[in-house]
Each structure stands twice: as structure tokens, then as C-alpha cells.
Design a protein around this nucleic acid. Structure first.
Length: 856
RNA sequence: GGGCGUGUAGCUCAGUUGGUCAGAGCACCUCGCUUACACCGAGGGGGUCGCCCGUUCGAGUCGGGCCGCGCCCACCA
């Protein structure tokens, strides 16, 4: 490594980032050596950030934590496998591409090799493009973003091996995703099913349970009258979704609710449409809600699905994938009515309308028919949304691929307990989520920019799709895109023809690929030698909000494919919060971009702020802390300069009591920091190191100044050695947190990179100070510092400079402490400019300071 | 409604097994250009440790109950 060639006259932080990033890159400072044995490998399952615009402060925060861990492990002599992935597939990219280029994907449009996006993108009237053209635009945009991301990470000083990047849309990720899927399918762990599925009507795709969130929305409760047995009696139900009355398949009461005994077992007639539906019971009905009677529709919510399944009810679907009411065949099987013509006419008023439009209209119809009791009552209720969506999700029956999860509950809980969680309480979030899972994982998405299912289906003589006999791709073919690739034994022109084939049109859920990051980064099935070295990995760093998605699905896939944990540790980071304790919002994050922060405060300073954030704990965004970090970096520069510039020759051993005591304390700090880092508690490692470092500068360096500048070699021998030992340790202790400034000061006097140097050894330092406790040397340092503090106080209160001479200092203290003070008195009188030090034995510590008169 | 976490000086936070634990930094005030550092140093003011019970000789520190905040979950009637 290049040597800085001695201590500069005026050390500065300016330019260190450019200088050292460039050198690190040239020297391959962070290159992973795959020849290392497995025992010396430390593998990190780096989170691939979503490439959908820009990184924000939260990324800087959590990636810094991981980098501190990576640097620590490297200094422990490990070969750190630290790749970087870009999560570029999926909806965020699609949405960004649509907005950026003013296009929308239409799978029916043919590919145009000469396509150019519109010069003036219009989001109101997007240009329809083919799926291959759309994918090309996605790849173009993500490539640009990924370069910008890499620049930021390098500027932040992440010690990533940049020769090992991957993208979740790349060929490697596609092969691994498809191969895993095919194997799951063969083992029966993946299956296809036509079933009610949670559906986003804007994106027009199925979404998984994990991608849902509740949002409070205003709504209205409508009390609706159902006639019983052709108007002999009536039933009243409350509903927020009257537009689904045509989809009603039953009314339900709780089995113990005697109020409805008369009705149970009879038939009710839906208002407006006159369809007969049974009145049944189910224990899930809450007698406290509404009238105690509930309308079951196919499907208004997830509970409807439970009732429908458990009671064997028929399906009457009225909602289409676009969120509008479908055309339905009144008068045919399943759509019977006591008055078909009226039903058809009234439904005609709703057909084609969106849910909200239909709801407004049906309320009017119910009012006209007299089936609405009273006025709709406004309510606020939690409604399920796709986390990226803008309208509530619906439940639509469709054909989807699933992966078994429910039947693996117990194995997954057991794996969660094998994993070391940092902090430990995060395990509860995992277990809560697993316990609460109600269905298998739906992995199909009706989208475009994702990993396709490597599956085709034969078409029968009538051209109907034979889903029961999927044609699977061979593993050697992967990755395949069934929309353009042709299965074995078929010709391209047979696509879509009777007796021919068709490709599975769907792509995999983004988590279905992200759940394989250890396999992708480790090249599972492609470079088995590498994979065996790195898998299972050592740590998964990630934030707490995606335990239910990324962490959970990764454990699931590893369990299914390898029957073991994908990693040993989970290091969970918190979020960055606004000063008002809300999650840092996108808009604010864009105002304060990470690059601006780095430019204003410097990478080490920003990293300092991040590293002070406790594992798992949300942390306030605080530029003030970055200023503190910058001060620390400057202090390290200056302290290193003091300790190293023109230092007199060092002795063989550290002999002075205060030097030895300082090293003993340092040894304890090293031991503490090491233990903390072993437990992934980078924050306390930094805090304790920093705390001691400031003490070291304020007291130790001041105390030994006299000896350090002493012209006699004997006087300086001990302190020279102690300064070198301590500075060397400090520089390495701070290296995981402040990589740039530590590399700079290290280069002044050492060979090679500090980031490849071995982590300081507490035992070695303790050895150099052996017996410091027993000999009273540690007490000497404590008492000396106590007295120095009193002397400074006296000078400060007398408004005198710190170098002002002191005529006499009387120290009252116990015999033991006074004895110890004697060991450090030479440094004390020098540092305090004390003429006479007078110890007096006493029970309590007290100091009298008599300053020399001020000389004009 | 359930789970987890959190509530300590104006701000950001330390306080490991209950007894110098009432702290640090920032901010504020005062002083000092001392040969590592003025991107500095020295000193100072400032808190009934969310609230209420309890255990204990003694509780930010343990137990119970409230309240606030955050995240996750829950059957949208």
C-alpha cells in the first residue's frame, strides 16, 4: 500500500475520500479471496437496495452498520464475502419506467426493434409498447441508477467487493429463481391453484399477504333488508359494501345467537336481485357487530373467503380484475332470480362501474326499492391496501402459483430459534408473523419486469389451455422466457394455436427472487465450490420492517431447498426518523440526499452518526451528530500527529507508571469493544472507544507532554513506546467506523492498509502493562487526573491561562492514594506547571491550589 | 384488540447483574490564542429518570397497573 511518507505539517480531512477510494480500488483492498478455507470466510447477505430512483438517508444508516461489521471481521483475519446486489425487478421499476418514459406495457403489442421512447413523456397518455420493449427500457433505466448507487456507496466507504455485484433481473438471478421453482414444483412444494386471491385493481396483479397494509379510510355502514321466504319475514344486515349484494351467497349468524333462531335454515332473498341465499351459522360471526347477521359475498374480504370455503358456498363473482363490475348472465345456473328481468335491469345500472361508482348507484336503487333502512352511517374503518397501491385490494378468483408455507410453520419457528438475532427481541416479530400466516405464499404476479415462470401449457384441440399438464423447462435451458422461448417438441408457429402451446404469462413476485439472495450471491448450482465456501452465510443485515417479507421468505426457501438456515445471525437495524419521530419520508429524504450529506460533512462524519445508532433502534436524523463525528476525525488526525511526529526513540518496554496504567485501561477498552462487536453491537464498541479516546487526549496526552518533548532519550523511551502502542490501537479500533481518516493516519507510519491490519489484541496490551493494577499504577493515573482536574478548575475560575504557574498544590487524600500519586507526580507537576506538590494524609479527597501571582 | 419496543437535562442519547447512576455530547454562559488540534482547550448552570402502586434497609435499575409514542399483527360485516 502506498505510504503517505510521514506526518504532514497540517493534517486535513480534505480529499481523503477521493484519495483512498481510488487507492483501495487499485489495490483491491476488499477483494474476497475464494481460495481461503471455509473456516476463514465470513459471508454477508447484503440487502440489494431497490433501484427505483434514489437512495435515502436510511440506506446510508443501515449499510454503514453492516460495513462496520464487515471491516471488523476482515481485521479479525477473515476473508469477508461482501457482495452488492441491485433489486431492480418488480413493480417499483415498472412504475418508474412508466413515468420516466411515458409508456405502458401492452403484451399484445409486437416487439419494435427500433423503438424510441417519446421525446416528451406524457403520463396522462402513455405510449403502449411491447413487453420486450418495456423490459429493455427497464434495463436501461436501472443500469443508470445502479451506477449512481455504486458511486454513493464508494463515497460512503463501503468495503464491498465490487467485482461481485448482481441484479435481481439478471440472468444469474433468473436461472437460480427458475431452477429453485422447478425443483419445488417437482417436490410438490410449489403448486398451481385457481382460488380467491388478493388482487390490486390498479396494477392488476395478485399480491401476497405480506405486501398488504391497513389504512384507515372513511366509509359508510348501510343497513339493508333481505326478505325471508318470499317476503314472509325479513332479515337486516349491516354492510359497508352494498355494491356486492349481487355477489351475496349466504347470510350468517353466530350459532349461539338466539335472536336469529327463526331465520337460520331458511332462505333469504337478496334485495334488488331476488336471488335465494341460505341463512346459516358460523362461529366467526360476531354477534356484537351490527345486527348480528352478516352477508357473505364472493368476495368482500378475507373473512368471506373463510366462510365460503368452510361452508361450501357457491361462487358468484361480480368484480373484474380492473375493479369494475362484470357482466353476469342473469337467469343461468348460479344467477337465478325470482324476477330475472328486474335483476338484469337493475344490475345493468351497476355493470361496468367501478366499486365506488357502483356503491353510490346501488344506494340510490336500494332507497328506491325501500330496502335501505335509514340513512348510511359514516364510519372509519381499516381497509386493506397493497402497500404500493392507491385503491383498496379486492379478492378475485384467478389461477396462481403458490409455495407451501402453512404446513412448514413448525420447522420455520424452529429455524427462527436457531438463528442468533441482534437484538434478540426481534425474534418475536418473526414468530408472530409465522404464527399469523393464514395461507400459502402466492408468488405469481401479472406483471412484466420480473422473472418469468419457466413453464408452458399445451393447448387442446379447441385451443383451451390445459393447465393440468404444464410443460416444464429443462434446467439446462434456463433462464427461459416462455413468452418468446419455445418448449421442446414444439415449433414457434404453434404458439397460441389449437394443439399447440402457450407460455405462462406471469412473472414471479419480487420476493420470490429476493428470497434467494444467498444462493444468487453465492452462485448456487453454478459455482458450487464458491457456494460451499459461503453458504450458509454468517449474517443477514436488514431492517425490522421486512422481517415478515425478506427474512421470512429467505428462511423458507433455504429450508425447502437445503433444510437449513441460510445464515447464523440476523443483524436488524432500525429506521432513520425525522426530528418529529416519524419515519423519514421520501420527500424529506430527497431534500437531504445522501450525496449532499457526504459532501457537507464527509463520509467519516456521516458514518459516525450512523454507527452511533443502536442495533434495531430507530434513530433521529441529526446533522449535529455528524459534526461531532467530524470533530472526532479531526482529533484523530491531530492526536496522531502529536504522538508520531518527530517522536524520540522508543524503549524496549513501557516503564513509567502512568504509561503502563494508560495501556492497562486501553487493554480493557479493546477487550470491551471486541466483545461488543462480536455481538454485533457496533454502536457501543464505538461509544466506549470514543469515550476513552477523548479522555486519553484530554488527560493522558497532556500529562505526558513534558516527557514526550524531553531531550534525554531515557526520559522519552517509555512514553514513545506507549504512544506508538496506543495510537496503533486507536487507529485500528476506529477503522471500522472512520475508514478514511484511520487509513490516512495509518499510512503516515505503517505499511499496508489499516483495513487489512489485525484487530488490536487486548492481551498483548495488557501484557505490556502487566502488574499495573497490583503496583498501584492504575490508581496513580486516576489520582493524578483528579488533581490535574482541580488545578485546571482553579486556573479557569481565576481566569488564568492553563499554563499559568502554580506556587503550591496541597492534596489531601488517603495514604494509599497519596502513595499512588507519588508515582505520577513528575508528570503532574509538569502538566500543571506546579512548583510545589504537598500531600497531606486525610480521609477525604480535597485539593487546594495556590496560583503564582500574575506577572504583568 | 394482540405482540414487540420505547418514554432519563432544551436536543440526541449512555446508564450490563438494584447501593457515588443522576451521566455524556450538542446547545447555552464564563474564561483561555498553552509548541497535536481555535474544526481547540478549561470551567459552569440545567433533570421530582412518563404516572401510580408494590418488593427492598435502599429502585431510572425488579414486579403490577395506567398514560404517551413507534413498529408489526388482527375477522374491512
Amino acid at each position: 500500500m502506498a505510504s503517505g511518507g510521514g506526518v504532514p505539517e497540517r493534517p486535513t480531512l480534505e480529499g481523503l475520500e477521493e484519495k483512498w477510494s481510488e487507492i483501495w480500488e487499485r489495490q483491491g483492498a476488499y477483494r474476497f479471496d475464494r481460495e481461503a478455507p471455509r473456516e476463514r470466510v465470513y459471508a454477508i447477505d447484503t440487502p440489494p437496495p431497490t433501484v427505483s430512483g434514489s437512495l435515502h438517508v436510511g440506506h446510508v444508516f443501515s449499510y454503514t452498520h453492516t460495513d462496520a461489521i464487515a471491516r471488523y471481521r476482515r481485521m479479525r483475519g477473515m476473508q469477508v464475502f461482501y457482495p452488492m446486489g441491485w433489486d431492480d425487478n418488480g413493480l417499483p421499476t415498472e412504475r418508474r419506467v412508466q413515468n420516466h418514459f411515458g409508456v405502458r406495457c401492452d403484451p399484445l403489442v409486437p416487439y419494435d426493434p427500433d423503438f424510441k421512447p417519446p421525446a416528451e413523456p406524457s403520463q396522462k397518455e402513455p405510449v403502449a409498447v411491447s413487453r420486450p420493449n418495456f423490459v429493455e427500457l427497464c434495463l436501461e433505466l436501472t443500469e443508470t441508477d445502479e451506477q449512481a448507487f455504486e458511486q454513493l456507496w464508494r463515497r460512503l466507504g463501503l468495503s464491498v467487493d465490487w467485482s461481485m455485484t448482481y441484479t435481481t433481473i439478471g440472468k444469474l438471478a433468473q436461472r437460480i429463481s427458475q431452477r429453485s421453482f422447478l425443483r419445488l414444483l417437482r417436490r410438490g412444494e410449489a403448486y398451481q391453484l385457481e382460488a380467491p386471491t388478493v388482487w390490486d385493481v390498479d396494477f392488476q396483479t395478485a399480491v401476497a399477504q405480506a405486501e398488504l397494509e391497513d389504512r384507515e379510510r372513511p366509509g359508510a355502514m348501510h343497513r339493508v333488508r333481505f326478505a325471508i321466504d318470499d317476503a314472509q319475514a325479513q332479515a337486516l344486515i349491516d354492510t359497508t359494501r352494498p355494491e356486492l349484494i349481487a355477489a351475496c351467497v349466504a347470510l350468517l349468524a353466530h350459532p349461539d345467537d338466539e335472536r336469529h333462531n327463526e331465520l337460520v335454515g331458511r332462505q333469504a332473498l337478496t334485495p334488488l336481485f331476488g336471488t335465494r341465499v341460505p341463512v346459516l351459522t358460523h362461529p366467526l360471526v360476531d354477534p356484537e357487530k351490527g345486527t348480528g347477521l352478516v352477508m357473505v359475498c364472493t368476495f368482500g374480504d378475507l373473512t368471506d373467503v373463510v366462510w365460503w370455503r368452510e361452508l361450501g358456498l357457491p361462487v358468484r363473482s361480480v368484480l373484474g380484475p380492473d375493479g369494475r363490475l362484470l357482466e353476469v348472465p342473469w337467469g343461468t345456473a348460479g344467477w337465478e332470480s325470482v324476477d330475472v328481468e328486474t335483476a338484469r335491469a337493475r344490475y345493468g345500472e351497476l355493470q361496468g362501474r367501478t366499486v365506488n361508482q357502483a356503491r353510490r348507484r346501488i344506494v340510490e336503487l336500494l332507497q328506491e326499492s325501500g330496502d335501505l333502512v335509514g340513512e348510511p352511517q359514516p364510519v372509519t374503518h381499516a381497509v386493506k391496501f397493497f402497500e404500493k397501491g392507491e385503491r383498496p385490494v379486492e379478492i378475485i378468483t384467478s389461477r396462481q402459483w403458490f409455495i407451501h408455507t402453512v404446513e412448514h410453520h413448525e420447522e420455520l419457528i424452529a429455524r427462527g430459534r436457531e438463528l442468533s438475532w441482534h437484538p434478540t427481541y426481534m425474534r418475536a416479530r418473526f414468530e408472530d408473523w409465522v404464527e399469523g400466516l393464514s395461507g400459502d405464499w402466492s408468488i405469481s404476479r401479472q406483471r412484466f419486469f420480473g422473472v418469468p415462470f419457466p413453464v408452458w401449457y399445451p393447448l387442446d384441440a379447441s385451443g383451451a389451455v390445459v393447465y393440468e399438464e404444464p410443460i416444464l423447462a429443462r434446467e439446462e435451458q434456463l433462464p427461459v422466457d416462455p413468452s418468446t422461448d419455445v418448449p421442446d417438441r414444439y415449433e414457434p408457429q404453434q404458439r397460441g394455436r389449437p394443439g399447440g402451446f402457450t407460455g405462462d404469462p406471469d412473472v414471479m413476485d419480487t420476493w420470490a427472487t429476493s428470497s434467494l439472495t444467498p444462493q444468487i450471491a453465492g452462485h448456487a448450482g453454478e459455482d458450487e465450490e464458491l457456494f460451499q465456501k459461503v453458504f450458509p452465510m454468517h449474517v443477514r443485515p436488514q431492517a425490522h420492517d421486512i422481517i415478515r417479507t425478506w427474512l421470512f421468505t429467505t428462511i423458507l426457501r433455504s429450508q425447502l431447498d437445503y433444510d437449513e438456515l441460510p445464515w447464523r445471525n440476523a443483524a436488524i437495524s432500525g429506521w432513520v426518523l425525522d426530528p418529529d419521530r416519524k419515519k423519514m419520508s421520501k420527500s424529506k429524504g430527497n431534500v437531504v440526499t445522501p450525496m449532499h450529506l457526504l459532501e457537507e460533512h464527509g463520509a467519516d462524519a456521516v458514518r459516525y452518526w450512523a454507527a452511533r445508532g443502536r442495533p434495531g433502534t430507530d434513530t433521529a436524523f441529526d446533522p449535529q451528530q455528524m459534526k461531532v463525528g467530524r470533530r472526532l476525525a479531526v482529533k484523530l488526525l491531530n492526536a496522531s500527529k502529536f504522538a508520531l511526529a518527530d517522536l524520540p526513540p522508543e524503549g524496549e518496554t513501557v516503564t513509567h507508571p502512568l504509561d503502563r496504567a494508560m495501556l492497562a485501561r486501553l487493554a480493557a477498552v479493546v477487550a470491551d469493544a471486541t466483545a461488543r462487536l462480536e455481538q454485533y453491537d457496533y454502536a457501543r464498541a464505538l461509544e466506549h472507544t470514543e469515550e476513552f479516546f477523548w479522555w486519553y487526549c484530554d488527560f493522558y496526552l497532556e500529562l505526558v507532554k513534558g516527557r514526550r518533548y524531553d531531550t534525554s532519550p531515557q526520559a522519552a523511551a517509555s512514553v514513545s513506546l506507549a504512544l506508538r502502542l496506543s495510537l496503533s490501537a486507536f487507529q485500528r479500533l476506529f477503522a471500522p467506523f472512520l475508514p478514511f481518516v484511520t487509513e490516512e493516519v495509518w499510512s503516515w507510519w505503517q505499511q499496508g492498509s489499516v483495513h487489512r491490519a489485525l484487530w488490536p489484541d487486548a492481551a498483548e496490551l495488557a501484557g505490556a502493562a502487566a502488574g499495573a493494577e497490583r503496583n498501584g499504577e492504575e490508581m496513580a493515573l486516576a489520582v493524578t487526573a483528579d488533581v490535574l482536574r482541580e488545578v485546571r478548575k482553579a486556573k479557569s475560575q481565576a481566569r488564568r491561562p492553563m499554563r499559568a504557574p502554580v506556587r503550591r498544590v496541597v492534596v489531601r487524600d488517603t495514604a494509599r492514594r497519596l502513595q499512588a500519586l507519588e508515582l505520577g507526580s513528575d508528570d503532574l507537576v509538569a502538566a500543571g506547571a506546579i512548583e510545589l506538590l504537598e500531600p497531606i494524609e486525610d480521609e477525604a479527597f480535597a485539593v487546594e491550589v495556590e496560583l503564582a501571582p500574575e506577572t504583568p
